[in-house]
Nucleic acid binder design. Structure first.
Lengths: 193, 193
DNA sequence: TTTTTTGTTGATTGACGAGTCAATAAAAAA
DNA sequence: TTTTTTATTGACTCGTCAATCAACAAAAAA
């Protein structure tokens, strides 16, 4: 029954299944068989298309990053002023979708993997640079000289508050998280020195 | 050759070895045999004293937290004013020792484990609460009403900047990291509203 | 001295899992 | 029509590893 052109479909299904399985396990401790089963194929086929486990993981990470980037772009498109755009970037980081179990698991395990996998670290660096560049570009139009420092603070706050919120015992509240970061941003911008 | 009173010695050796092995692997993907070997005993003995793998991990996490808490206490003891004490807490979070490979690995994997292990989550909550309470106590003496919000921001910044610095490509610079957080803290305190 | 407690390990069990391979089948190209 | 390319899997290999157990040794208690 081989229908041609299956490759992209299979790959997408595997990526999707990987993200789900990692979310369910909370770790990278998932077997290729589990992933393949959820994606509706044999583990041999998963190996055939991706070569190995780590490459499947990296594809899943790449996908998570891509989705996140798209979300940021979407939010940016709706904003007018540099301040609004900065706000939009912050809010995008705390959107509901980023607090889904699978996404949280993806990020946490991404960090762990970044210690030892150079490809994972490369991807993480891309995320960090992109976030920083986005913030910097908009902040420069508000406070040119202080922009670099403010960008670092906002970026750090986004990551840090996200981490705390993601692992908190109560349900994560993206809204109050955003508000907190935006508050700190205002403080920085209001200072006149 | 059984010398009595070995238990605490063995346990300590296993905890130490676990932290080293996790640091070397970057993940929790280390075998009990590896740990036991580094600690100079058979894997059977490790099981004998700890019961299982997860309990060995948790003991290692507890130890990491304990060391960190001691460091904070030490730094606090040398500070006089509430502001200095707040500064001390921040600096303790970015001390050299916290940027050692094993410590970074311990924290990152701790976060991952906190998703699924209720004991790991409990420990993490203790860390978060303690940090927050420490900051709050000192900030209350400077800006009573704004203290809660400022504490959240500082705590978030500590975690977030640490994460970025720990996974950065360059060598981690605890000093500039502390400076950044302290700068943000000043901004909050200088605001008069 | 006999018994119990504490320390210790080699050997084993039982399970699981990554990656390979040969074989099958259908579509497309020659 | 023959051949090549693409899709697909069951079965298998080789390895690993957590956890258990029987057994041995020495100190302490009875």
């Amino acid at each position: 029954m081989p229908k041609l052109g299956m490759e992209p479909i299979r790959r997408a299904a595997l990526v999707e299944a990987t993200i789900h399985e990692i979310g369910a396990a909370g770790s990278l401790d998932v077997t290729v068989s589990q992933i393949a089963k959820r994606a509706g194929m044999s583990s041999a086929l998963a190996h055939h298309y991706f070569g190995g486990k780590e490459q499947i993981f990296l594809a899943a990470m790449r996908h998570t990053l891509t989705v996140y980037a798209a979300e940021v772009r979407g939010a940016l498109a709706m904003a007018e002023t540099p301040f609004e755009r900065t706000e939009a970037i912050i809010r995008a980081g705390f959107s509901q979708s980023n607090f889904r179990r699978e996404v949280i698991a993806a990020w946490l395990n991404f960090y762990v993997l970044a210690q030892t996998s150079s490809e994972a670290r490369r991807l993480l660096t891309i995320y960090q640079r992109r976030l920083h560049a986005n913030l910097l570009f908009n902040l420069r139009q508000i406070a040119p000289d202080r922009a670099p420092k403010i960008a670092k603070i906002v970026a750090g706050l986004i990551d840090g508050i996200y981490l705390r919120e993601a692992l908190a015992n109560h349900d994560s509240d993206g809204n109050s998280a955003s508000q907190l970061v935006i508050h700190a941003l205002r403080r920085e911008l209001d200072a006149t020195e």
